[in-house]
Design a protein around this nucleic acid. Structure first.
Length: 215
DNA sequence: CACCAGGCAAGTA
DNA sequence: TACTTGCATGGT
């Protein structure tokens, strides 16, 4: 059976991305960099409570205060700067108009996100797929770990290598890409951390390149 | 106690 | 170009 169906049968739909607004999803994408979602939730909740989870609020709050607000998410000084960079980019280029920002064509939107200091390929693609709802496959450390462990890719496969592998074998379906990535993270967390846990992994016996599926 | 979490940029050679 | 290091809280 295909990789996707094995995971879906085991875990069911994951319903990503958590977040009520596109801005909240973008903020979450930055805050979750190398950080558990649990910690991100605390920081997001804090921002909501202060009423600053909006363009103007995030623009007006001083950098040092923003850092304190997002402390639970870790790397708070770094991430406060990264949030400011994104907000400034949308303020300057799109007058702080988020709907206008998301009206950009897919390639231009991705390039724009990548031009923001602190937004790399995974963060940009998470925003592309989950906030902008574009058919861009998100790669992360779990994707690499799982495919490498199953000898589908070699040790030095790059982000782009993995992204191309998935996108060449799947139709451009936002809902499929959404669930696929979420299920990879779920499977990685549950079964791809240490050896013994591999025993009951739904991907056991999955060796050949069987990425193609429909959803 | 060590190790990791839904990365990224900057520094080093 | 190809590694290495800093960033930091909170859970296992």
């Amino acid at each position: 059976m295909a990789m996707f169906n094995r995971m879906l049968d085991s875990f069911g739909p994951q319903h990503w991305w958590p977040g009520e607004t596109r801005l909240e999803m973008m903020v979450g994408a930055i805050l979750t960099q190398n950080t558990s979602w649990k910690n991100v939730e605390k920081a997001i909740a804090g921002l909501k409570e202060k009423g600053i989870l909006n363009i103007e609020g995030l623009h007006e709050i001083p950098l040092s205060l923003l850092a304190e607000e997002i402390r639970p998410a870790g790397y708070f000084n770094i991430k406060a700067g990264r949030l400011k960079n994104l907000i400034n980019y949308i303020k300057e280029g799109y007058d702080g108009d988020i709907p206008l920002f998301f009206r950009e064509k897919t390639d231009a939107l991705r390039e724009g996100l990548l031009s923001v200091k602190g937004i790399g390929p995974e963060t940009a693609d998470s925003i592309m797929l989950y906030a902008a709802k574009r058919p861009v496959f998100v790669i992360d450390a779990y994707t690499y770990r799982i495919l490498n462990r199953h000898r589908v890719v070699d040790d030095q496969a790059t982000y782009h290598d993995l992204q191309t592998l998935f996108m060449d074998n799947l139709s451009e379906d936002v809902a499929l890409f959404n669930e696929f990535h979420a299920l990879i993270v779920k499977t990685g967390k549950e079964f791809c951390r240490s050896k013994p846990l591999c025993d009951s992994c739904p991907l056991n016996g999955w060796e050949k390149i069987d990425i193609q599926t429909s959803y």
